[in-house]
Simulated assay, not measured.
Amino acid sequence: MDFLAFQGSYWPLILIIFVASLFIQGYLSRTYGKWGQVRNSRNLTGAELARMMLDENGLSHVPVNMVPGQLSDHYDPIRKTVNLSEANYRLPSVSALAVAAHEVGHAIQDKVRMPALVLRGRLAVPLSLGMNLAPLLLLAGIFLQLTGLLWLGVILFGAALLFHLVTLPVEFDASRRALAYLGQRGVVSGQEAQGARTVLTAAALTYVAGFAMALAQLLNVLGIARSQSD
């Protein structure tokens, strides 16, 4: 067995994307932190904005909860809850409005049964299990020279790429809904509107980076599988 084949030909690309992801995470933290210190002119907390947006979209039954952590905000499609981190829940910042509106955007997607959101929900659990097995199957296939296991690992990496691909339109659409609501209701304007857009754009870049990393990993394991199959 050629152990050099294990190195693959895409590790430089993976390294570049990894470093870029670190820069993107840093950019998100700086952007979120900057606008997290700017009080919005309506003096609305993230929780108040989320409640208002939910009620106006016929989702008064969806609760808004506070959860620990920073940027731990998420919508839970199983429990039907909007969950905001403590800072975004309590503080009347521009960042809090942007994040809260984005999470409510997911709740609205759930209400209208957005196909991409439904698909992502169905893929989430099996793919999380599959991605834990994929590296093990890949290594087992290489060292035991079992081609079937090797290609099964490749398939699971491909499924992970599909999950990232489906995630992109879901996240972009939630941000679009958030910005549209904030603008149409006059919640933010001028610099505040630009700040909200910047925060959501920075967050979106993290999903783009995740997709790029999944693609590079798939290309790499494909190269490994082909070299081991020859």
Rank of each mutant, 00 (worst) to 15 (best):
G186Y: 05
A196Y: 04
G190D: 07
L182S: 09
A203C: 11
Y181P: 01
A204T: 15
Y207N: 02
Q184A: 15
F211P: 12
G190V: 06
V187C: 02
Q191M: 01
Y207Q: 04
S189Y: 07
L182G: 02
Y181A: 03
S189E: 15
V208A: 14
V199A: 11
V208R: 04
V208D: 08
R185H: 12
G210Q: 07
G183L: 00
V199G: 09
G195H: 09
T206R: 05
L182C: 10
V208P: 07
F211H: 11
T206G: 04
Q191I: 00
T206E: 03
E192W: 04
R197G: 00
T198V: 02
A209N: 13
V208E: 11
A193Q: 14
L200E: 05
V187T: 09
G210K: 01
A204W: 14
A212S: 14
S189F: 08
L205P: 04
A196N: 12
T201M: 13
T206Q: 07
R197C: 00
G190L: 07
R185V: 00
A193Y: 10
E192M: 05
A212I: 03
A202I: 11
Q194D: 14
A212C: 13
G210T: 05
L205V: 12
V188A: 04
G183K: 11
T201R: 13
T206I: 07
A193K: 12
A212Y: 03
V199C: 08
G190R: 05
L200W: 07
F211L: 15
T206V: 06
T206W: 02
V188M: 04
G210C: 02
Q191T: 06
A204S: 15
G183V: 00
G183H: 06
E192I: 04
M213I: 10
Y181Q: 02
T201H: 10
A203W: 13
